[in-house]
């Protein structure tokens, strides 16, 4: 239904379709991730460029994942960033991505990005486009530095990557 509504333009539709898939992935992921702090809200933050933030807000706000109500915060302030449960990082500049990741380093915030090298460069979940499909990449090192637990069932679907050796 979500996808059918976004199908008029072929190119645009394809992009829309891809965004919807990514949003659905993020939504589904929340079901397989256990956070150390729980509450009745699940905060999904968005930083970066592009239409992905607007798609998140539109499709996820108010939805319930594992009895938590999802709230989408677009471009939160730096001090609010680590209050999010999920942060979607969509900077086109790798520098900005790195600074955001550094800021959230060791924090129990699930970092999601869609660049090909996102997970290798310290992001937790990479949603990488592979042909017609979106593929999950999980940087298990980044996850393990935090108190987050990602279900092995998701891990079995994903490609596991490790931090690139720095320097």
């Amino acid at each position: 239904m979500l996808m059918a509504a976004l199908s008029p333009l072929r190119q645009g539709a394809q992009e829309l379709d891809e965004r919807a898939i990514k949003v659905a992935y993020i939504f589904n992921l929340t079901k397989y991730v256990a956070w150390p702090r729980t509450g009745n809200q699940l905060v999904v933050g968005f930083v970066g460029d592009g239409p992905m933030g607007e798609a998140l807000e539109r499709m996820l706000s108010g939805k319930t994942s594992d009895s938590r109500i999802i709230r989408v915060v677009l471009s939160p302030k730096d001090d609010a960033l680590d209050q999010c449960d999920v942060v979607y990082i969509a900077y086109s500049s790798p520098k900005k991505i790195h600074s955001t990741l550094d800021q959230l380093r060791n924090k129990s915030v699930l970092t999601v990005g869609d660049s090909d090298s996102f997970s290798r460069e310290g992001g937790m979940i990479g949603l990488v486009r592979a042909g017609q499909q979106v593929h999950l990449q999980v940087n298990i090192d980044a996850v393990q530095r935090t108190q987050l637990k990602i279900s092995s069932r998701v891990l079995s679907l994903a490609t596991i990557v490790h931090d690139e050796a720095k320097n």
Partner: peptide
């Protein structure tokens, strides 16, 4: 075991 596969 199949929940994730079904979900995704």
């Amino acid at each position: 075991t199949s929940t994730a596969a079904l979900t995704f």
